[in-house]
């Protein structure tokens, strides 16, 4: 049987090659132009971070005349800069772990059982993913001040649960529904208890789904700023908010701003690299 599958796969690939062979390559042109459009602003940011402020403001150069790493040095040596990264990464990490741990049992419930009010509950959860953070900015400020979490990573991590937990439930439910229920039943017949089955059998099966979910929780927590900035002042200030400091009395420090911007891209690129093979399926939230 495996030989047949291999032949079929080989047939399929060479068939698709034949197909793309006679198509006019308008596709490649579209794709190239699109990727160019995506990369140009990033390229501009990167080379700007390598220029001196004098060069940036004095005229247009497509390539730095004199490459300088002074901007990066400033960031890595000044605690008020690099602690911004640590703050951001810590609340993102807390939020990702929290979201997945909470969402796993709930997603299992939604994918395996019907229960009183399940559809309405699912919708209500989803609607929170869609609620504008702007609405919550002020009440969160009051809430987290009242319980003494204000200006800690925990405040931001919990606040981000508002949209990340529903999203995690949604994605995981999609992946879990793709796993046949017979697997659960077989495990129970083999004498597995629910927690043991869940940890030993079910989690490894949906490992890809958990990875994709972690990616999305990371992504949405990492990119959000409105709540993160509202709930922090000094101690837990995220890097993205620190960037506003470059607007100072002495005018804009463009080079430093660009360098800080470039550094915020790095965690994202790393994460994408790890999930690159699941990215397409992941973006369909397990629902293809």
């Amino acid at each position: 049987m495996s030989a047949e599958t291999a032949t079929a796969a080989a047939t399929a690939s060479s068939v698709s090659r034949a197909r793309s062979g006679f198509r006019i390559d308008g596709g490649a042109i579209t794709l190239t132009l699109y990727l160019l459009f995506l990369m140009l602003p990033i390229y501009w940011l990167v080379i700007m971070s390598l220029k001196t402020n004098a060069e940036i403001t004095s005229g247009m150069t497509l390539w730095p005349q004199q490459i300088t790493f002074a901007n990066y040095r400033t960031i890595f040596t000044d605690a008020s800069w690099y602690s911004g990264y640590i703050n951001s990464l810590s609340y993102v990490a807390i939020n990702t772990v929290l979201s997945i741990c909470l969402a796993l049992p709930a997603a299992y419930a939604f994918s395996r059982y019907r229960f009183l009010g399940d559809k309405h509950l699912f919708f209500w959860l989803l609607s929170n993913r869609m609620a504008p953070p702007a609405i919550f900015a002020l009440p969160f400020f009051n809430l987290y001040s009242a319980i003494g979490l204000f200006d800690t990573p925990w405040a931001v991590a919990l606040a981000h649960c508002l949209f990340n937990v529903p999203l995690a439930v949604w994605i995981l439910e999609g992946f879990m529904s793709g796993v046949p229920r017979e697997i659960d039943e077989t495990a129970y017949l083999d004498g597995y208890s629910f927690p043991r089955f869940f940890a030993k059998i079910f989690m490894p099966i949906i490992a890809n789904g958990i990875g994709v979910t972690a990616f999305f929780c990371f992504m949405f927590s990492w990119v959000e700023l409105l709540l993160a900035r509202t709930l922090t002042t000094v101690n837990a200030k995220p890097i993205a908010a620190t960037m506003t400091r470059t607007v100072s009395a002495a005018g804009m420090d463009w080079g430093l701003l660009a360098a800080a911007g470039v550094l915020t891209l790095v965690p994202g690129v790393l994460v994408i690299w790890f999930v690159r093979n699941y990215i397409a399926k992941g973006f369909a939230l397990g629902r293809v």
């Binding site: 030989a3 047949e4 291999a6 032949t7 047939t11 068939v15 034949a18």
Partner: peptide, 18 residues
């Protein structure tokens, strides 16, 4: 049997495969 080249031969006759 499976994997003996039947489908390959068929796809060549139909032109899906050169």
């Amino acid at each position: 049997p499976s994997g003996c080249g039947k489908t390959t031969l068929l796809n060549i006759i139909s032109g899906l495969l050169i």
